[in-house]
Amino acid sequence: MRADPHIVATWVRGWTLARETTPPTPYKGGLRVDVGWPEQKARYVFPAVVPAIGELASTINEPWVFLKACASPDAMQPILTTGWAIQRPGYMMTLAGSMGDFERPEGYALDVIEGPISIVRALDPAGEAAAIGRVVVVDGFAIYDRIETRPEHRRRGLARAVMKALETIGREQGAVRGVLVATPEGRALYESLGWELHLSLIHI
């Protein structure tokens, strides 16, 4: 299987908008993002294993620069030099339809901020954020980012409620398809909401 380069590039563009970093720039079949964070200076993202990954692995000698590719660990390992380690994979997922309707869990309120970066928070009875998520729309794709639920509030349907509110915002802003990268733990949740796996995203 091979990732769709357009979907990967769209996700990267959305990620940079949601994280308010500099826009991505093309780099030898992939994209480079100058993130500028203390623990992530830059990241390179590729839709497949390409020679540029091996070149970067052999020439980068500074910390906090990450290489990411839609590929299996077995495909990536042979081109890596000493000092690089494969991290937990992410799962690039897409949604063509709707996630359905979900009731907001009793006792929680949704706080919605719409804009170029739309934010939905589920607030507990004390007004504290129990769950949060963000969405940006790029070329008809809703890019979901940083969907999080505090541990003590999990398994109550908050993530579903937040995701549905974000989906509604995305559709109002012209999105017809969704894209996100899930953690191994989050993959099962998104699959239960109708999301489909596009490809694994390997982080090194």
Rank of each mutant, 00 (worst) to 15 (best):
P5R: 04
V12I: 05
V12G: 05
T16L: 06
E20G: 13
T21F: 14
T25L: 14
T25G: 12
Y27Q: 09
V33C: 04
V35S: 14
A42W: 02
R43K: 15
A48C: 09
V49I: 15
A52S: 05
I53R: 00
E55F: 07
P63S: 01
K68V: 03
P73V: 10
D74S: 15
A75F: 09
Q77R: 14
T81G: 13
Q87L: 10
G90P: 03
M93R: 01
G97M: 00
G100A: 01
F102M: 10
G107D: 02
Y108W: 05
A109V: 08
L110T: 11
V112D: 02
G115W: 05
G115I: 06
S118F: 06
S118C: 03
S118M: 04
G127M: 06
A130E: 01
R134S: 12
G140A: 03
D145M: 07
I147R: 06
P151N: 08
L158G: 04
A161S: 13
I169S: 00
G174F: 11
R177N: 07
V181L: 10
V181M: 12
A182S: 15
G186K: 04
L189G: 03
Y190F: 14
Y190I: 11
L193Y: 08
G194I: 03
W195P: 02
H198C: 02
L199W: 10
